[in-house]
Amino acid sequence: MNPLRAIWEYLKEISGENAYDKYLVVHSSTHPGRRPMNRGEFYRWRQNEKYNNPGSRCP
């Protein structure tokens, strides 16, 4: 894979940009037949999840 492409893929992965696509894969295998959330719903849900269960961060 060319390096720029690899960096772009890494950025997508680390920023969570492709989280929805991964969710669709997991969802279809764990809950086949049930309607998955759409992109907007998924990100709203994910964001709430992240900040309502605050882990921590360093100064």
Binding site: L11, K12, S15, G16, E17, Y20, Y43
Partner: peptide
């Protein structure tokens, strides 16, 4: 932008 226009397009 992230919430209404293009959800989840973080990059």
């Amino acid at each position: 932008y992230l919430r209404f226009l293009r959800p989840g397009r973080v990059l």
